[in-house]
Design a protein around this nucleic acid. Structure first.
Lengths: 207, 207
DNA sequence: AAAGTAAGTCAACAAAGCTGACGTAATGCG
DNA sequence: CGCATTACGTCAGCTTTGTTGACTTACTTT
């Protein structure tokens, strides 16, 4: 532990080289509880503390959670010389077998040319297969080959571990809250996609 | 507890506009409930459905929520010819005034060279200022100028709207769950950073 | 005085977006 | 039928943001 980062010297440093422990002065000034503008309202039972700091914390949460979650699969991707873009395509094709190219584009919100780059590789390597649309033969219906399913599963397992641990730690009620908030953050379009994609949630089953 | 988000009607086809409505057959086959491997465990009232589908849903949630959340600030960034990387730097400098370059690097997990690129612009445009470290004069302590604070606030407001709406919709309990799960997803290092950064939260961890 | 550390910088390269311009089937409609 | 439209593919070039590697310049530490 020869290298003390910065000029802080306080207590037992848990891990020499990881966490930037910022100057307490700086940090504290930012979060000074004495200037907590929280109004002392006594309305409903579960009132929200919609202070600025709460929102800023959420920004942090999204950044770190997303970063580390996506990162979980990188080890595998690297050894196969694939990138995250490939993983994303694999994921959504796996979740929507028989999806058309244009539908996939709409989900990913990237251009045809960007998708082509990853799709070409995935097909060349035998992870994704095409089939001509039955009703519209211009369409190319995408799906995972057995190899693609296997790869997707390997990638999935890595992320699953993380999620599982987080879910266990947080508890079932928290998981429900997590889902609700995440849904609320995304666009209406994405919410609609999820509703339609998961026949469990929308209790409207059809034939 | 289940949030009945209303059902979508199958009426006119979703052409062009937004959501790719996938072939029901394809979707359903993926989510066949008949092969639900959910174990009949009895660990308390709120047992978790740790089925595969739940985890895969979370993958979707993270993708869409992160995408749309970060996207919220893009309009402003674009007119200033800045990118998301600039926003990230601005955010973390704003949240940690007086942060050193190396601490910022640790938080962002990028290289010095990558950071230099955005930091140079931010300083040239007068959004970020430097100060020599007092105890260690090699350090450059970064902080937002008034202009930087103003810009950061503009960006913040856009994201805030989204979060606020999501928080209101989901309710206070859900927000707490959201935070817990998000914390659980990220690395220990990131959790430690958050704990140390926010003197409110850090309490006895994990029961 | 020597070694190590914080920060800056040049140069080259990679991943994954983007726009623009076309080409080719297949579909749909007047 | 014939022509416009649509779904998909592809070439070419550019942008953003990340990476290595190789130094340099100040300080600090030993």
């Amino acid at each position: 532990m020869s290298d003390q980062k910065g000029s802080y010297q306080q207590g037992p440093d848990p891990k020499g080289a990881d966490i930037p422990r910022l100057q307490p002065s700086a940090t504290v000034s930012l979060l000074d509880p004495s200037k907590d503008p929280r109004p002392a309202q006594g309305a409903g039972a579960n009132l929200l503390f919609l202070r600025e700091e709460e929102i800023r914390l959420a920004q942090d949460l999204l950044f770190f959670a997303y970063r580390d979650f996506t990162n979980a699969a990188d080890v595998i991707l690297e050894e196969l010389e694939l990138g995250r873009a490939h993983h994303r395509a694999l994921h959504f094709i796996g979740r929507n077998p028989g999806i058309t190219v244009s539908d996939l584009l709409t989900i990913l919100r990237i251009t045809k040319q960007s998708l082509a780059r990853v799709l070409t590789v995935l097909m060349e390597q035998g992870y994704v297969g095409q089939a001509q649309g039955r009703s519209d033969r211009r369409q190319r219906l995408l799906s995972l080959t057995p190899a693609g399913q296997a790869l997707e599963r390997r990638l999935f397992e890595r992320q699953r571990e993380r999620l599982l641990a987080a879910y266990r730690e947080a508890g079932g009620a928290a998981v429900d809250g997590f889902r609700r908030v995440m849904r609320g953050i995304m666009d209406e379009q994405a919410r609609a996609y999820l509703d339609q994609s998961d026949p469990n949630e929308p209790k409207a089953k059809r034939a």
